[in-house]
Computed example of a mutant assay.
Amino acid sequence: MTHPQYPPLFPQQPPAKRSRGPLLLVGALVLLLVAIVATGVVLVVKRSDDKPAAAAPAARTKPSDPTAVEFRRVLMVKAGTCPSPAPAGTACDAKGMRYTLGKVELDGSNVTEVKSALQEKGAGGWYVGLTLDSKGATLFEQLTAALAKQTPPANQLAIVVRGQVVTAPSVQSAIAGGKIEISGGYTRESAEQLVGEITG
């Protein structure tokens, strides 16, 4: 005896589809990670385009020894060998020029800050900057005003660091404000070395 085929009471369900939720979550996390890495690369690239940290001024304190730096009038200049030790009232520069100098008009006790920095204009070389206190700024302005009225070499101002003339520029006019720049072919290393010699 045959039994009629009845449809099952619970028809078979097709296999359940796997949820795509975890896959979407993983995909979203991967995209987020890629975005973060890309942003980091952009920031690194942007940072490398900025001015190098070396261009930023490196300021130091005032000279530990007031006699480490002196500002003196130039009375006479001549080429030749420099005796060691130099006679009183004389000093030489690195090029062998011998200077006969006047008295010390101001010194390291008037310097409040010494720094090396990269020039923003011109050739872009390094320089050493000195900042004077209010008394030093007044004395320096008076000194440069007097020198500007003289003829060479009496219009030159020698900046002497530990017994050596580091620069002796001609003065054309009074210099106010108490900011002094010593320049002349310095590299970062030589400017930092001069800063170290001034500050001790």
Rank of each mutant, 00 (worst) to 15 (best):
A56Y: 03
A58Y: 02
V161D: 00
P66W: 06
D50T: 06
L143M: 15
E70P: 00
L118P: 01
K135T: 13
A86T: 00
Q142S: 11
D65F: 04
R188Y: 14
L147Y: 00
T61N: 13
P87L: 10
V74W: 02
Y186G: 03
C82F: 06
R73L: 05
E113F: 07
T100L: 07
A154E: 06
E192R: 15
C82T: 05
R98P: 01
G177H: 14
E181F: 11
A86N: 04
I175L: 14
A91N: 03
K78Q: 10
F140P: 00
P83H: 04
K121Q: 13
T67P: 01
L143P: 00
Y127T: 11
R60Y: 02
V104I: 09
K103V: 11
G102P: 02
A168F: 05
A79D: 06
T144P: 00
L75M: 04
V114N: 06
P57F: 10
T138M: 09
R73S: 04
T187E: 15
K51F: 06
V104W: 01
T112W: 04
G129R: 15
R162G: 01
P63L: 11
T144I: 09
A59C: 02
Y99K: 11
T90K: 03
I180Y: 04
A191L: 15
A148C: 08
P63C: 12
T167C: 11
V74M: 07
I159R: 03
A191Q: 10
S134G: 04
S84K: 14
V128H: 01
A59T: 10
S84Q: 14
A123K: 13
A168L: 06
M97S: 05
S173Y: 08
D50N: 03
S134Q: 09
P85R: 03
D107L: 07
A55Q: 11
A79R: 10
P63G: 15
A176Y: 03
A59N: 12
C82R: 02
V128I: 08
Q164W: 09
K62F: 03
I175W: 11
A158Y: 01
E141A: 05
I159L: 13
A158R: 06
K62N: 07
T112S: 12
L130R: 01
P83F: 08
K149T: 12
G108S: 10
R72K: 12
V128M: 06
L130Q: 00
F140T: 01
A137C: 09
T151N: 14
R73I: 06
